[in-house]
Write a protein that binds this DNA or RNA. Sequence first.
DNA 1: TAATCATTCCAGCAATCATTAGATTGTTAT
DNA 2: ATAACAATCTAATGATTGCTGGAATGATTA
Lengths: 217, 217
Amino acid sequence: MKDARKIKDLLYEQVARIGKVFSSPKRLELIELLGQGEKTVEALAHEASISMKLTSAHLRELRGAHLVETERQGKNIIYRLADKAVSDLWVHIHTLAEDRLIELQMELQKIAMQPEDLVPNDRETLMKMARRGEVVVLDVRPTEEYLVTHLPFARSIPIDELRQRLAELPKDKPIVAYCRGPYCLMAVDAVALLRKEGFKSAHLRDGVAEWRAAEIR
Amino acid sequence: MKDARKIKDLLYEQVARIGKVFSSPKRLELIELLGQGEKTVEALAHEASISMKLTSAHLRELRGAHLVETERQGKNIIYRLADKAVSDLWVHIHTLAEDRLIELQMELQKIAMQPEDLVPNDRETLMKMARRGEVVVLDVRPTEEYLVTHLPFARSIPIDELRQRLAELPKDKPIVAYCRGPYCLMAVDAVALLRKEGFKSAHLRDGVAEWRAAEIR
DNA sequence: TAATCATTCCAGCAATCATTAGATTGTTAT
DNA sequence: ATAACAATCTAATGATTGCTGGAATGATTA
């Protein structure tokens, strides 16, 4: 077994291909976006604030590692994650990052709002309250993403429409807003707006991907 | 919120620091080794077949991302994983790699032995059989690693001593050998030796880290 | 105190990566 | 057809990274 070394090198090299995909900030952002549902290259480029060329290049890397699939629809090519496990791995990585990197913790604290304490931090009791109608769970992502999946009992008001649709929300119950995940700032903005308008509101760090990864083991 | 972009970039960049650590084959190998228990730089360099300088450089990356801790013991500096979640993430990454990369699947198939069917592939029934003494679970890693943790009911015979200690093993029961994980070839070698000597033997892909990651969810 | 050993730090090279611009492919609409 | 558009491919840039050799550090032993 003198070539055991060579075999091992090959194996680790393959795994490193996957790791490499998760080593670029923009690719991580694209993965998170794709975790919300399939999207065109243009939509991805716009959401991630990068050129379409660069988006295409990054998606190429993702496809090279077989982590995304493509489908042509007319002029557009839509991308989707090849496996839910890709989204799960994203959640695992950013969770570990939040646990270990003080720098990241500090960044996150800056955008965190004061807790308000009107909302429990564990998923189960929050869902219990939502089921009883004691809180309103509000999904502020674009409607398409809400339609793909959303948290149980969640209502959809995209952040862009929130200001005009405030009347739909109750003033007496706490409104818990969430969006794509801890690095998506839409829910933070929503809470800021709601509080300014006199609503009781709190912000849920986790998005659909985080809940799924936590629930399904 | 025009600087939302800047904040996001910072956040994803931090997470990418963690991803970067997992993007190098040698670092992955070091992480897997550290998952078996704390080790000196020298031991790591030897096991991974790289120079101590390079080992040190990689460990520096790992420490920079706060994924390992160091402790001085006399002349030596020993490294250990800062968190079990690091080992879990390694398991998640290589699992995803095995699911998605055909190239890796093919490599793994080359080293896989014929299944023999004397051993169930799900963890639970294997443990049941081990509890009843119907199979012998054999840990062929170095003794130090066995002492840190091992699978329930497992006996320890390091691969180097196996040839001389064959008499300790029964000829009538199947012997299920395992080692550090799917990329560690010690168990494969052990099974090859055992079969040649007339034992019934099979090889368990997963190591301790994989079992832990699967159980604790 | 000097000598020794394990490990890290520093400087450099070649290889790789992110990013951009320009040319190209494939699809729809006229 | 041809024009207009979405997306990719190619080539070229500067910035990292992996790795190696030599010098420096820091604890232990003599």
